[in-house]
Design a protein around this nucleic acid. Structure first.
Lengths: 318, 318
DNA sequence: AAGTTGAACGTTAACGCTAACGTTCATTTT
DNA sequence: AAAATGAACGTTAGCGTTAACGTTCAACTT
């Protein structure tokens, strides 16, 4: 026990003994066994995190905010990616639970019923991040993607756009993008009765998806504004317009989402929506830690969105 | 023991008993305890991975390749990012070792001596990925970044460029980029006695670093070709040239690295070097698994590089 | 001198699991 | 009918750690 105390750095060992123990531990290259520790104390200082993907800035930013916060509170985070597959999420949650984590973080709200049941019944705090709902599994921090879509729509309508289109990932892939499209649709339907065309190329990365989706739309219709799942797709779209000799914003408007790094060096500022991803990570992690420590926190925290008007859409109603 | 056997799915229980046990387990919402299991069997099926960062495509690609391979072999991977800080890597390795992982993966070759010592003395297989050396801690799979720099240099020299420059991250941040710069320098020094200027902006993301670095170089000198740490920086540089009214490749050549997704939608193909990151992840993971299973593998596996000539450099010697 | 105190250190059991070995008993072999 | 077999199932101990409680003993109090 003195060894255990010395190594854990708790009281009850004289400085002399502690020094001797630590020296011996070093000499014999002692490595503690976290499994035994976790077994004995019946919990771990792990936070399990589920993300759709490591690709892209969005989740990297959120993750960065979370990890910072957890690290400085002495928690380790273990991460898995689901590649947008709810079954992969479920199996990750099962595996996680077997490690007795201190907390669990899921991305979004689209889970298998079994996942929800499993988590509701366990005493482990759960954070849902990125998306927003008033009825989370436990707590949630995110943005309202439907509202984000409405914001873009309202902006476009106010600038006089009437033939909107949307380029997205394959259906079911990203439910947040679907929610934004819904918001966009509802605004256009309500305010000027216009339908929103959409293109969802099946393959490729964000850039080529944006490019291909735009090509599809331009081939089959003549939208006056195209909104994209994110800034990278919007850039792909921009390149497509450029090749086809369309001027932006004179001939067509382009709007992205997320205000990604790329946009900071474009010759024309991109119309987009700023999302506070780092802050979201920090807020989410902080709230989850509070929950873990038994402090009561807001169940549901929506983060603000900011529409950033840029030079890829008209400056005023034409 | 029958319960243990039934749940683990090993022989020695009748199908009837197994079914009963599994039913009861489900009814009582039994969750296995991995800590106890790992303690009893004195190992875990974890692979610990250390990456510099989650930002950017490069490590996401490598990771994707590795995770695929590990997942299908029944191993879970736990990941940490060091943000290019070797001390963070050391503390991660310490924490990892306390979990008795089946294997450990580090990025690059730049480790604290203590990290190397710790790993050399442990029986746990270690893979160093992304960089290449003949003398790894245990095994390694990667590319020769010095040679990559030489390839770019040789290509530039052959096209008649004589006033080279390089835009990179802050010194010490990315030792691979430093190695590439060395390769570039040595080729230019040897073949035409030209020195390579360099710019290393302190702040910002890849795009702005490329932009700022280019601005610095153009303000203080007149390079005829600028090479970049990666394609994203090269794009930043491209935008800077565009704003200053410089034509590429007529007035200045631009070369990137890594052949990133962005390049696939640019109007001019980017001169770059293709790196097989997904393959690297798969190869690395496969070799590490073999090592874990006691099968002997190549200690040191270099992956091929391919120079991709593009339209951002001259097409032939002018 | 006897009693009290409290820091320093030790003993025990328990965490949940599994390897190794032991027992049971229906079925087959002789 | 007795013996042999082997699948099915049980018992025990140990993995490395820590919570809880027990012991020791120098230093102080009365």
């Amino acid at each position: 026990m003195s060894v255990s105390r010395a190594i854990r750095g708790v009281d009850g060992v004289s400085e002399k003994t502690r020094a001797q123990i630590l020296k011996i531990a070093r000499d014999m290259k002692y490595v503690p066994n976290s499994n035994a520790r976790s077994l004995a104390v019946a919990n771990s200082n792990l936070i399990g995190i589920s993300l759709p993907t490591f690709a892209g800035e969005v989740f990297a930013d959120i993750l960065k905010g979370m990890r910072r916060t957890f690290d400085s509170a002495g928690y380790s985070s273990v991460i898995d990616t689901t590649e947008y597959n709810p079954d992969a999420e479920l199996s990750w949650v099962r595996r996680l639970l077997s490690w007795q984590p201190a907390g669990i973080i899921l991305t979004g709200l689209d889970h298998r019923p079994e996942t929800v049941e499993l988590l509701r019944e366990s005493p482990i705090p759960v954070l849902e991040i990125w998306d927003h709902t008033e009825t989370p599994i436990d707590i949630c921090v995110g943005i309202d993607h439907y509202k984000a879509g409405q914001m873009i729509g309202a902006h476009a309508v106010s600038l006089g756009y009437r033939r909107p289109a949307f380029v997205s990932a394959p259906r079911g892939h990203d439910t947040r993008a679907d929610a934004r499209l819904e918001g966009l649709r509802d605004i256009f339907a309500r305010d000027c009765g216009a339908a929103v065309l959409s293109a969802r190329p099946e393959t490729g990365n964000s850039f080529t998806t944006g490019f291909e989706g735009t090509a599809q739309l331009l081939d089959s219709a003549s939208p006056d504004i195209i909104c994209y799942l994110n800034d990278h797709m919007a850039f792909g779209g921009l390149m497509c317009c450029q090749i086809r000799g369309l001027s932006v914003p004179e001939d067509i408007g382009i709007a992205g989402f997320n205000q990604l790094d790329l946009a900071s060096v474009l010759p024309k500022t991109l119309t987009t929506v700023r999302t506070l991803r780092r802050l979201m990570g920090i807020t989410g992690a902080t709230n989850l830690l509070a929950r873990i420590n038994g402090v009561s926190v807001e169940t549901s925290k929506p983060l603000p969105l900011e529409l950033v008007p840029g030079e890829t859409t008209r400056l005023q109603r034409s």
